[in-house]
Amino acid sequence: MSDESKKQLNRREFFSFVTVGWVAFTSAVAGLASLAFRYSYPNVTFDPEMDFIAGFPADYEEGVDERWKNGFGVWMVKQEGKLVALSNICTHLGCVPNWLPAELKFKCPCHGSGYYMNGINFEGPAPRPLERYKIALTPEGKIKVDKTKIYRYEKGQWDHPDSYLSV
């Protein structure tokens, strides 16, 4: 009896047994860890409102309009016959720049990035210009800003007809 059991588990079989055991153990741990990882990504999140109606194009004067900045994080900038919805999130690390009317620039308080009125970066560490949001007219002639769609200058997307309104 004891001889037989010794034969059943020789050296090579023992090691393959151990290998299978370790592979199974490792994959079980990895599987559980990845489940726990996935657990940290909820399926539903409650985000703030991503689009809003911003009045009529005639409401805006030439220059930077800050009325939607606090509620929706958008500057309406009218310049050279174009009205754009400019994101107020600094492209460096996501702070909110301030509009300095005296110096005609947006200046970020966190690390000093500066942007011209049109959103192009010129000083400080910001790597790229501010982003534009999709802007369109509703059938009633009101402006609708959709923050889910962004247009980036360095990718040549500012020529896209949805990225500005001709006024």
């Binding site: 940290s40 990504y41 909820p42 999140t45 409650f46 985000d47 703030p48």
Partner: peptide, 17 residues
């Protein structure tokens, strides 16, 4: 929606989660 920042914040913005 699926990067490390989302995992840190539990959402896309700094908020209650």
């Amino acid at each position: 929606k699926n990067d490390v920042r989302f995992q840190l914040l539990g959402g896309r913005f700094v908020g209650e989660p």
